[in-house]
């Protein structure tokens, strides 16, 4: 059940053309890296997929369902199967780690009970398991803002795990972390991808990370897709196409 993006265009209300006629196809189980300069449209592309950003035109089809045409109710059913993690982690800082993780499950639970703050014991158990998987079980009752950056991102992953996602969107998940932590976070994502069979679409800044983790790369420049292929296909010429003529290659 592939993800098919067709002629996706996004024009922001202020006239910025963030995406121009972008089309590609992602097969199940792939680890796709989205690369491009700052402002190239990476975040916009990822956000269009779960419609945090409303596309201006084009279609996104997943599991034979047109996400772009989904009603609000259908959209929630789709979203709950798509995990998302963010550069700034986007945890609810004043809530506990456990609550943050549990909130990943909201789309599956009785809304009225959750409004009262009730989560079934089975869900709490699931949340503790998710925290164990990212190695944070003993921090479950700490406030989220008491954790370090790397720990917060692992909470973000645990929150996504609660959704039992079939697709994981990651918007520069390691850009705020040091290189050692970056690898540890990406390994969790890789594990999900390899062992859980979760399709991953992840925007990344560093090419060495792309080479290490991705099975496929999509390059964006000024909202246009300028590259689609395997990581090892990115040679100097392609690199300059994506990052501009003046760019120097570092690492990778």
């Amino acid at each position: 059940m592939p993800l098919i993006v067709e002629h996706l265009t996004k024009i922001y209300p202020d006239g910025t053309r963030a995406l121009n006629d972008v089309s590609f196809r992602v097969e199940d189980g792939e680890f796709v890296a989205i690369v491009g300069l700052s402002g190239a449209g990476k975040s916009t592309l990822l956000r269009c997929i779960n419609r945090l950003v409303e596309p201006t035109s084009g279609r996104i089809i997943w599991n034979d369902i047109d996400i772009t045409a989904a009603s609000p109710q259908e959209l929630r059913r789709i979203r709950r199967q798509i995990g998302m993690i963010f550069q700034q982690f986007n945890l609810v800082k004043r809530s506990t780690v456990l609550t943050n993780v549990l909130s990943g499950r909201l789309g599956y639970l009785n809304p009225w009970l959750t409004l009262l703050g009730y989560f079934p014991p089975a869900e709490k158990k699931r949340a503790m398991e998710a925290l164990e998987r990212v190695g944070l079980a003993d921090l479950a009752y700490k406030r989220a803002d008491e954790l370090s950056g790397g720990q917060q991102q692992r909470v973000g992953i645990a929150r996504a795990l609660m959704q039992e996602p079939r697709l994981l969107l990651a918007d520069e998940p390691v850009a705020s972390l040091d290189p050692v932590l970056a690898h540890s976070i990406l390994r969790y994502i890789e594990e999900l991808n390899k062992e859980g069979g979760v399709t991953v679409i992840c925007s990344l800044h560093f090419l060495d990370l792309v080479h290490r983790y991705a099975t496929k790369v999509i390059g964006l420049k000024d909202g246009f897709k300028v590259f689609e292929g395997r990581p090892e296909e990115i040679d100097d010429r392609r690199f300059k196409e994506i990052y501009g003529q003046e760019a120097e290659r570092i690492g990778g």
Binding site: L52, L91, V92, S103
Partner: peptide, 14 residues
């Protein structure tokens, strides 16, 4: 902070 709002919306919460 709009971040958590986006994140929770993205989980399929109403």
């Amino acid at each position: 902070d709009p971040g958590p709002v986006e994140a929770i919306s993205a989980t399929g919460a109403n």
